[in-house]
Design a protein around this nucleic acid. Structure first.
Lengths: 133, 133
DNA sequence: CAGCGTTATGTTTAATTTGACATAATGCTA
DNA sequence: TAGCATTATGTCAAATTAAACATAACGCTG
């Protein structure tokens, strides 16, 4: 019998790739790669948007309930591999510092969302067409 | 520095969710859930097709270079949760046994492929539209 | 009946991913 | 200058996932 151990950390607030709760439903995950490496995806979008909204990486990770350590690594690998400077960082100073989206970062996010939008809907529609009784 | 340990097992022959090798390219993964549990996806399709082609689970997993143990678990959970009997099993006898798709199984596969087809193309098209320079 | 190649499972081990903890550096403010 | 809330990293532990190993049962065949 499978022991379900109590999780030490509650679930993150990152949205799931499938929200429908019908009996049977389709899920989809979309992301962008470069030379075999993940460089961007829905998780990154949520993170960057939360940073912009709160003004700091720290506040954003608390809001999304993910670890700073890894959020930071995600940001850095995206910046390095995509060669896009998403954030302007400020260490120290008033309020301790913070991070805000660059124009380049905003532009990339806008493009990604344009690309992403409609894919879920299309998948759901196609699924219903084929699997409805 | 990241130590890249030698993998003990070479990569499986399951096809990747993204085949393009442009500088930047989109990937997509589609699957079907039921009450929060994965019940079907591209990996299952490949597995079932390989079983039909070779006549046994064993030959199929060798062809795809995945473990019998897990292929078996995948099949069983799909059958249990979807309440679809995909395979007709034969243990022992001439050639030791084997497994073949049931009519019900073939029908489900056909539907899934109808659903799946075109999604990759749509994703690629949408990506190019937005991210071309 | 022994051998073979299957299906069918339990158990153990390894690899990977994720979370937790620790700490330095920065530059405001009081 | 001490305190503070950040960014920036390293290291370690825990959890999860995947692979490997080990066998049993089955029913043909020679």
């Amino acid at each position: 019998m499978r022991r379900k151990s109590k999780p030490v950390k509650e679930k993150s607030n990152l949205s799931s790739p499938c929200t429908q709760e019908l009996d049977l439903y389709p899920c989809s995950k979309i992301w962008i790669e470069k030379k075999g490496h993940l460089v961007f995806g829905d998780g990154r979008v949520e993170l960057f948007k939360a940073i912009e909204e709160t003004g700091s990486i720290n506040k954003a990770v608390h809001k999304l309930n993910i670890s700073y350590r890894h959020a930071w690594a995600y940001i850095k690998t995206s910046e390095k591999r995509l060669k896009v400077k998403f954030l302007r960082y400020k260490i120290g100073g008033k309020y301790g510092g913070g991070a805000t989206l660059t124009e380049e970062g905003k532009e990339f996010l806008k493009r990604y969302e344009l690309f992403r939008k409609g894919i879920n809907e299309m998948v759901n529609l196609k699924f219903k067409k084929v699997f409805r009784k």
